[in-house]
């Protein structure tokens, strides 16, 4: 561990541009948002009807809404959406990857077509699904129903989940496919020689070996789903309780120039996502960093 002093200063100097950029683009907005969450502005009028300028320290007043009905509803929606969509996407994504990995004629076309939804911008996908789900749209025609998918209500939740799974299952599929391709075929051959069934091979070989890639995919999807905004906004609309997510709530407050509460909710969402990510890595993600730790250990042994 003991290095000559000059070298560590050199390292610090070399890293400092990165640190400065990080400070500017990561820490400054974060700290600024947190500061904003303790202030209020533009909420009072003077005698002539003009808005009193300047900010006022508001303490924790902006955080009062965090215990409010609307925030809790949004938090619940966000959590439910995340659990359901990520769950479905993992199942479908793995299935897609297994299909894409097979060698058969037309494989390239199949791979490309499975990835198309992922390539479509979310806002465009939202508009497309809105068209499908509108009152006299394709969904009702196919199902023979008269459901108002885009009105506030439980059906709207389902519409958003369907659209999101359609859009992002290929992403999970892609990452899992990458994981599958690095599993050497010898392992499967050996298992077959030993008489392992297809189910056993999948459970004992494929799943454990693809786990690191799958965990990365799930982590990415978790973070993405927890801050989802565009799909419910475009597909169903803002301020519809059944699909209002935390990001949607923050957007709504900010557009109504309530920057204080918006920042407070933003900070709360940040903490929520950070906690989920931390717990995820702690509980499941030992493998995520095992590689790094291994290398560090080797380096230490050599040193």
């Amino acid at each position: 561990m003991s290095r000559p002093r000059g070298q560590s200063w050199l390292a610090a100097a070399m890293l400092s541009p990165t640190m400065i950029v990080l400070a500017l683009v990561v820490f400054y907005p974060l700290v600024a948002a947190m500061r904003e969450s303790f202030y209020t502005s533009g909420q009072t009028l003077d005698a002539d009807g003009f808005v009193v300028e300047g900010e006022r320290f508001a303490g924790l007043a902006n955080y009062a809404g965090v215990a409010g009905e609307r925030f809790l509803n949004a938090a619940l929606n966000t959590t439910l959406f995340t659990v359901v969509t990520v769950g479905l996407e993992v199942v479908l994504g793995v299935a897609m990857a297994l299909v894409m990995q097979r060698a058969f004629r037309g494989r390239a076309i199949l791979r490309a077509s499975i990835l198309v939804p992922w390539a479509v911008p979310t806002a465009v996908a939202g508009l497309m699904w809105k068209w499908i789900f509108q009152a006299d749209g394709v969904a009702n025609a196919l199902l023979g129903t008269e459901i108002l998918w885009t009105a506030d209500g439980p059906w709207a939740k389902l519409a958003v989940v369907v659209a999101d799974v359609w859009k992002t299952a290929p992403f999970v599929g892609l990452l899992v496919l990458a994981g599958l391709q690095i599993i050497p075929s010898e392992v499967y051959e050996a298992a077959r020689v030993d008489g392992a069934s297809a189910g056993q091979r999948f459970r004992r070989i494929t799943l454990p070996l693809v786990k690191p890639a799958l965990l990365v995919a799930v982590l990415f999807r978790l973070m993405d789903a927890l801050r989802v905004f565009d799909l419910p906004y475009v597909l169903v609309g803002p301020r519809k309780h059944s699909v209002e997510t935390l990001s949607g709530l923050i957007w709504d407050e900010a557009t109504r120039v309530h920057y204080g509460p918006a920042s407070a909710y933003g900070t709360a969402l940040f903490v929520y996502i950070a906690v989920i990510a931390f717990v995820f890595v702690k509980l499941l993600g030992a493998d995520l960093l095992s590689d790094v730790r291994q290398r560090r250990k080797e380096a230490r042994d050599v040193g």
């Binding site: 400070a23 500017l24 820490f27 400054y28």
Partner: peptide, 16 residues
Amino acid sequence: ALLALGASLVACGSSD
């Protein structure tokens, strides 16, 4: 050091 840097940036951002 990073926190101090962040704080100073906030300070210049909010000069009324």
